[in-house]
Design a protein around this nucleic acid. Structure first.
Lengths: 354, 354
DNA sequence: GCGGTTTCTGTAAGCGGTTACAAGCCCGTG
DNA sequence: CACGGGCTTGTAACCGCTTACAGAAACCGC
């Protein structure tokens, strides 16, 4: 019983049609044990040069690639992070993912995307166990209690722009400060009657932005009327129509996001209302589109991509902490607050060409 | 030796700190075998109501969730699809993912995102084996041979807008037809000297669009000058500058994508060149932004989200085909061609208000 | 030429599920 | 009351890989 040698007969069918070669096939072809093959591939342990060569040759010949699933099962590590997002549109979505990807791929991690279509999808969260090492969750519309109930236990997680659960760290946007800066800027520019187009009622960001706007308006002694929007262009356009028609009196509009601001802007333009001459406008998010509309939109800027990258970094830290055994540690991982800044453009500033 | 009964002593520590309960823990607590627990959770086999109740109760008590990795190992099915994309920006990216997600989540599948940063990332493709059931690959910039070399063998795949490998089906945009329609439209509007801002040299879409434009220009008997761009706003702006300065003579511009068209549009506007009065502009892709700039951009429209959804559907079909054993079948899965259509807006049409 | 290291390599026990197979149960019949 | 057959359930063998442990081999100084 000599150790298995490369024997042309037994090597005949290393893998069935379409099936992949396994580590055993490689071991058999190379005439070594599976442990050695594993060692060669993970390169931590000592392996003689000749053995390494034999294994690599066999692996190449068979087109062997380790099976990520099996590996993650025995190592308790998947190499992927879950991203849980609401049903986002457009630039915010892509910028966030872009930032996450930048940081994740730097660390050799994958990103598993899960979109919550207004609540549905929540039950798939639990199924992520064993498929990802941690979760980045953004669910500003969701009742924190419901969210908590659906979070898979024991999976490291980071929350974006929503209330953190069970001591997980979170990344928060200082919506109040951003909104306050916007309103203060409008007031400083001479606005007396500001209309705030808010986000949907249940949305946390929306609530905070509204609060910030109200505080700043009170401080500056200007009137603020709040109209609820839905973060989409249409609701902004509706407000623009009302203002143009005179139904709604306003010399400035502060929208809770850029799409609504742009909707309002387009509606006003369509009706020949001068922006910023008669009505000044400020948005929130500073999506790339903002500087392309004309007049270019003044907006509260958040570095969305950077936020995504930070989320990955935080989660990575939290995952390794958990692996080291500090998981129950009282240092829950620092929350981070991202402070937005005002990007002044043409909708709040008379330009040479109006 | 009765079968293990729920015994408070042995049940003491179902899971260590932070660790998940396994199917064995559930079996022990419920006093049944692991097979039964598995049956209850997969619900295919007959299980008595009382057993079901016992297991469900135990699972709930332990907060048990099946481990996706382990399950995929024994079932040879992961429930996720890999998405391989170039380093895309903006709306195209988000629309595509949006469409893919819509279809994937309808089928209960996840999306694992891998971005190719100009070539790097290719080696991670092979590592996807065992992590996804199939791959959707979009790599218009990549040499097909290099791509082929890096594709994990035996993994079902669908190619988007690039040359298919090994008989995998692909989804292609009829770039030629779209570009031809754009140029024909410009010629019909009276253009005599058209400038085409192409995409980068190695890009397949870019080449096809250029070819379509050239063919249509020849057919219509109008002059076409090609200037190479990079799909970003800046290169479009550069052309706009040249045209405004008179360095480049043109009464119409056809850009290979919308961002370059918008760049050109902004540059022309900045210099007071009338659009479409002096220069008409057509873009390609019809990203949401196109209708928001002013004048609104005429563009060749592709339903990007629909394309993403189709890719998922095709891949799903191919995966089940492979599972049924038709993997070597000569019917390689039908290629699909998506025919774009022209969306005429203000940059090629005098409007009431110019 | 022998014990003690040091450096490789193989064996086998998991990781957490699924599932073929066999065994046990319960029932209606002849 | 023995018997065949339909439901349920348990046992154990995988899925493909990592890794603790132990055995083998090579090298050391004496």
């Amino acid at each position: 019983m000599s150790p298995a040698r490369p024997d042309s007969a037994s090597v005949a069918a290393p893998a069935a049609r379409g099936t992949h070669a396994t580590i055993h096939d490689v071991a058999r072809v190379a005439g070594v044990s599976v442990a050695s093959v594993s060692r060669v591939f993970n390169g931590r342990d000592h392996v003689r040069a000749e053995m390494r060569a034999r294994v690599e040759q066999a692996a190449a010949q068979l087109g062997y690639v380790p099976h990520a699933g099996a590996r993650s099962l025995s190592m308790a590590r998947t190499g992927a992070m879950g991203v849980v997002l609401p049903d986002l549109h457009g630039e915010f979505f892509s910028e966030l993912l872009r930032g996450m990807d930048r940081e994740a791929s730097r660390r050799g991690l994958g990103l598993l995307l899960t979109v919550l279509h207004d609540g549905r999808g929540l039950d798939t969260l639990a199924a992520l166990r064993g498929q990802v090492d941690g979760l980045m969750v953004m669910a500003p519309e969701l009742d924190p209690a419901i969210l908590a109930r659906h979070m898979p236990r024991g999976l490291a997680s980071v929350f974006l722009a929503c209330i953190p659960q069970d001591g997980s760290p979170s990344l928060r946007i200082d919506n109040r400060a951003g909104a306050a800066a916007a309103v203060a800027h409008l007031a400083a520019g001479g606005a007396k009657r500001i209309v705030h187009i808010s986000g949907p009622a249940g949305n946390l960001d929306a609530l905070e932005r509204r609060a910030g706007a109200e505080a700043a308006a009170a401080a500056a002694g200007v009137a603020l009327t709040v109209i609820e929007g839905d973060f989409h262009e249409g609701s902004g356009a509706a407000v623009g129509e009302s203002v143009a028609a005179g139904t709604l009196e306003a010399d400035a509009i502060f929208a809770a996001n850029d799409m609504m601001a742009i909707g309002a802007l387009m509606a006003l333009k369509r009706h020949g209302v001068a922006v910023p001459g008669q009505v000044a406008i400020v948005g929130f998010d500073d999506i790339p589109l903002s500087r392309l509309v004309s007049p270019a939109l003044t907006s509260v800027a958040i570095d969305i991509a950077a936020m995504g990258a930070r989320a990955v970094a935080q989660l990575a830290a939290r995952i390794t902490a958990a692996r080291e055994g500090f998981l129950e540690s009282t240092s829950t991982g620092a929350d981070e607050t991202i402070v937005p800044h005002l990007m002044v453009r043409e909708t709040t500033r008379e330009t040479d060409r109006g």
